[in-house]
């Protein structure tokens, strides 16, 4: 199907998408790199000249850096563990015969479609409010003192909110993967005398390993960029300042563009490391 004519047509039709994305990637990226080597304070003197790797060094040596890395890792790691473990269990549950499977599926998937600002605000006010939140009522009902979630347990609270948003994604993908498992494999194992737990461990789980890897990689990329949830709940206070949020503050709040850009370059490198692994898997799939 490849004649000279169709090949040149193909190149022509591919061009707009490639050019647009190339521009979208290269222009800002170059600018970020450029700013990262400058002392650049738009509101306090503007461009104050080249500073070499100063911004890179200052970014990682600032007192806010390591805590933000820790927070990022905690949130990403916490959400990943919760969503993958619960996701596997939920997927297995939803794969079982039951009445109203379609409806349950819809109920479970729903949170994924809620816009991040909405879910963060609903959780913050109607669930985690220490006075009027549902959780406060629940605590009181059991005679306990309500927790001030977003200040006393800010990071776990954020993990909870974000997990709620991403659990549907993990469940949906793992469920799809489970359903693609050839049931004759499980039946063969059953005939071979493997009890349910062993069947899960030796057949279902290995079958899911690829899907789990994909869930982890894709979620990591999105979770590293979690923004709106922090923006509307704590605004980065109470130890919830992630790397993304720190960069945002440097750039837009304190208008230290040079420093923020250096942080941005770190974030890009970090995301690329994860993306490489993801691309490997996706790329392999392309050959198949």
């Amino acid at each position: 199907m490849a004649t000279q004519h169709s090949r040149s047509a193909a190149r022509l039709m591919l061009a707009p998408a490639v050019i647009l994305l190339l521009g979208w990637m290269l222009v800002p990226l170059t600018m970020t790199l450029y700013f990262s080597f400058k002392k650049y304070l738009p509101l306090r003197g503007g461009d104050l000249g080249w500073v070499g790797f100063d911004n890179y060094i200052r970014f990682v040596t600032s007192s806010a850096f390591w805590p933000s890395v820790m927070t990022t890792l905690l949130i990403v790691g916490g959400v990943l563990v919760i969503t993958v473990v619960l996701g596997v269990l939920l997927a297995i549950l939803l794969d079982q015969p039951m009445w109203g499977q379609g409806v349950v599926r819809i109920l479970v998937i729903a949170p994924f479609f809620v816009m991040p600002t909405v879910s963060a605000l609903v959780w913050k006010n109607m669930f985690m409010d220490p006075v009027n939140g549902i959780l406060a009522h629940l605590w009181k009902a059991f005679g306990a003192t309500p927790i001030e979630w977003l200040s006393q347990a800010s990071v776990p609270s954020l993990i909870m909110i974000v997990s709620w948003q991403w659990l549907p994604f993990a469940t949906l993908i793992l469920l799809t993967a489970i359903q693609s498992l050839d049931s004759s494999q499980l039946e063969a194992a059953e005939i071979d005398g493997a009890p349910p737990v062993k069947r899960f461990w030796y057949i279902t789980l290995p079958h899911l390993s690829r899907a789990i890897t994909i869930v982890i990689l894709i979620q990591s990329i999105f979770l590293l960029a979690v923004f709106a949830e922090i923006f509307v709940t704590t605004g980065g206070a109470f130890g919830t300042r992630t790397l993304t949020y720190l960069i945002f503050q440097r750039v837009l709040e304190s208008q230290n563009v040079g420093l923020g850009s250096a942080g941005g370059v770190y974030a890009i490198i970090l995301a690329n490391i994860i993306a490489i692994f993801l691309m490997r898997i996706v790329g392999k799939n392309l050959d198949a």
Binding site: L29, M31, T32, I221, L224, F227, I247, F248, G264, A271
Partner: peptide, 17 residues
């Protein structure tokens, strides 16, 4: 794959530009 990788670019990295 390259097109997909642009999707992975963290927004905050290019926020200011």
């Amino acid at each position: 794959l390259w097109m997909l990788s642009t999707k992975m670019l963290p927004a905050v990295g290019v926020l200011y530009p």
